[in-house]
Simulated assay, not measured.
Amino acid sequence: MKTVNGIVDLQLEPQIPIEQIQIKFNRPAASRYGLTVGKLSEIIETALNGRVVSQVLDKQQTFDLAVWLKPDARQNLDTIRNLLVDTPNGQKIPLAQVATIENGTGPNTINRENVSRLIVVSANANGRDLRSIVNEIRDKVNQQVHPPSGYYIQYAGQFEAEERATQNILISSLIAFVAITVIMYLSVKSIPSTAMIMINLPLALVGGVFSVALTGGVISIASLVGFITLFGVATRNGLLLVDNYNTKFAEEMPLKEVLIKGSMERLNAILMTAFTSALGLAPLVVESGPGKEILQPLSIVVLGGLFTSTALTLMVLPALYAKFGKFLLPKRTTSVVEDGKVPKAVFE
């Protein structure tokens, strides 16, 4: 991890060796006597750590009655080695016959997570995004580190929280997309019109993707929130145009006039939304103070997406309507000329 660019404050969880009595069980010898490691552990725990076996009542107060070795015996290796162990067949054997007892050194603390032992290697990120640093660490570890059986490496901390948040946002985005589609259909009552409005969503993504690419190519949680915001703006613009087109088309207005008048009537509202949002986001894009790690990526995505979404919406949606507008509402036919009068457009 030291060779990874952007790693700072790298450290291993402090482990201070301390003197301790180490008891290592001889499993084959214990099995010959019909003893299990669990049974031996209970006996040793009772002798060295104590076990409450009853209670004593003294002057209206209850005290626990614990059984264990005397303090000086708990520090004596010979006493521990000669500790008698009851076997299933009624024999009593010294602990030394099924275990090795000796002085040694070990860690001062043993941490656990989900019952498994845990040791932490921690570091901070500086000058690079967290995801790229962890990906590089993961590649190097996979190539150079091969843990023995029973050991595994887990990448946690802020990176784990970011991955979990990314998954939640992607699921929420999918749900939001479905909800927006249903609401659009209930508004325009037409599947082709709904499809035309939803086509506008990829147009909003174009500017956001280019903005992210130009500013480093890092997609963070804030960037994903910015894309969701763009979805709402793009959908609103598409709904304004298509709904106005449908209204004018229903008034028997020629298609060319529908597109020109419908677009001009909604141009002010669309541009006003885009420019006011851009003015509000511009200071956040160039901001360098605290909080920029959240506000800046979001602002970059939304600001870039606003320009492309607004421009492409005003060009692509009218073109699509001119091509497929005849499928959005009932077709028009012309009545037979009667008494020299100009025929009027009627609906089938």
Rank of each mutant, 00 (worst) to 15 (best):
Q60V: 09
A73L: 05
T62I: 15
R51S: 04
F63S: 11
N76K: 08
L118E: 06
R112S: 06
G104D: 08
N108C: 01
D72M: 08
N82S: 15
E136V: 08
T105A: 11
I101P: 02
G104M: 01
D72V: 13
A99D: 01
E136F: 05
I137Q: 13
G106D: 04
G50W: 02
N82F: 06
I110Y: 10
D64I: 02
I93G: 00
G106M: 07
V56M: 13
L77I: 15
E102H: 13
R117Y: 06
I80N: 03
I44F: 06
D129W: 11
T87D: 00
K59L: 09
G90C: 00
D139T: 15
V56K: 15
N126G: 09
L57S: 08
N89D: 15
K70T: 08
V121E: 10
R138E: 12
K70G: 11
I44M: 02
A47F: 04
N126D: 11
I101T: 07
I44H: 11
D58F: 12
D64A: 06
N49Y: 15
I101F: 10
V67P: 00
W68F: 10
D64N: 11
L77P: 03
A73Y: 04
N124H: 11
Q60D: 13
D64L: 05
L48G: 08
W68P: 00
N126V: 08
Q97V: 03
N111P: 02
A66G: 03
G127S: 05
E102I: 03
Q97L: 06
S132F: 01
A73C: 06
T87A: 01
N76P: 01
N76G: 10
T62H: 04
R128D: 02
I80C: 09
I93M: 02
V115N: 05
E102N: 14
S116D: 08
R81H: 10
N108L: 07
G104H: 07
E113M: 06
R131W: 05
A99F: 03
R128C: 10
E45V: 01
N89S: 04
L48N: 06
L65M: 14
A125Y: 09
R51M: 08
I137P: 00
R131G: 14
V85P: 00
A73M: 04
V115P: 00
V52R: 12
I137E: 03
T87L: 01
L118N: 08
V134I: 15
V134C: 10
N49M: 11
I101K: 11
V67G: 06
R138F: 08
S116Y: 14
I110P: 01
V120W: 04
Q75K: 14
R112Q: 11
N82A: 09
N49A: 07
K59I: 07
P94F: 01
W68I: 00
V85I: 15
P88D: 04
D129V: 07
V53T: 08
L69C: 13
A47K: 11
R74Q: 13
I133T: 04
A99N: 12
R74A: 15
Q75A: 13
V120L: 12
F63H: 15
L48C: 05
E113A: 12
N124R: 15
L77G: 02
L130M: 14
A125P: 01
G90V: 00
V53N: 10
V115I: 07
D86H: 03
S116L: 14
